[in-house]
Amino acid sequence: MKSSVIIFPGSNCDRDMDVALKKFGFKNQMVWHDNQEIPKSDLIVLPGGFSYGDYLRCGSIAAKSKIIKSVIEFANSGGLVLGICNGFQILTETGLLPGILLQNKYQKFICKNVHVKINDKENKYFKNIKKEILELHIAHNEGNYFCSDDEMKSLNDNNQIAVTYCNEKGKEDEKFNPNGALKNIAGIFSKKKNILGMMPHPERMIDKYLSSNDGNFFFENLFENLK
């Protein structure tokens, strides 16, 4: 399985993602944003970070970079595109995913572990995953998911809500919503579920000595599903 991680100026989770993908068997390549072509890949990842210093709106400048045309073509032809944190913000700014990530409700940069519940398993990312509630890390200032009422209806109707913030038992409540996101949304799919954007970082949870193991479930499962 081949993967490509796109690096933008200001990306800072690209190397963590590289380590995570390689740990679970992906042959990963790092691709600079100024390239027009992406090497043949089974998965493209837009990593976390602060592309272009979050100028204008988070992800808005990266969403117009040279490489993005190829990412959009790849996604539209059914290819798997995963956006984590800033990658999620970039995906909404390209229009590949609906809505936008607004500033956190309480104006604070949030950096902590959270629990998220997997809401849909009929897709390549979560099919057969062994755990339904994952403890992952979030680190963002703009993670407050927002969309129009029509878009929310469409997300619900098509089971596009991928992961939601909850407690360790899977209870979804406003109390466990770190940033004010609509319906506790931590991540969403595109209609065809080949594109996944989420704020939590599975790549930071792949070593029990450093953090936790829960990212392992995600990557291991993803690799198996792509085989």
């Binding site: 204008l56 709106r57 808005s60 117009k64 909404t92 700014e93 609906p98 809505g99 936008i100 607004l102 927002f146 969309c147 129009s148 878009e151």
Partner: peptide, 9 residues
């Protein structure tokens, strides 16, 4: 429409 504003918000 293309860059300066995000028409969602």
């Amino acid at each position: 429409k293309k860059l300066l504003a995000n028409m969602v918000i």
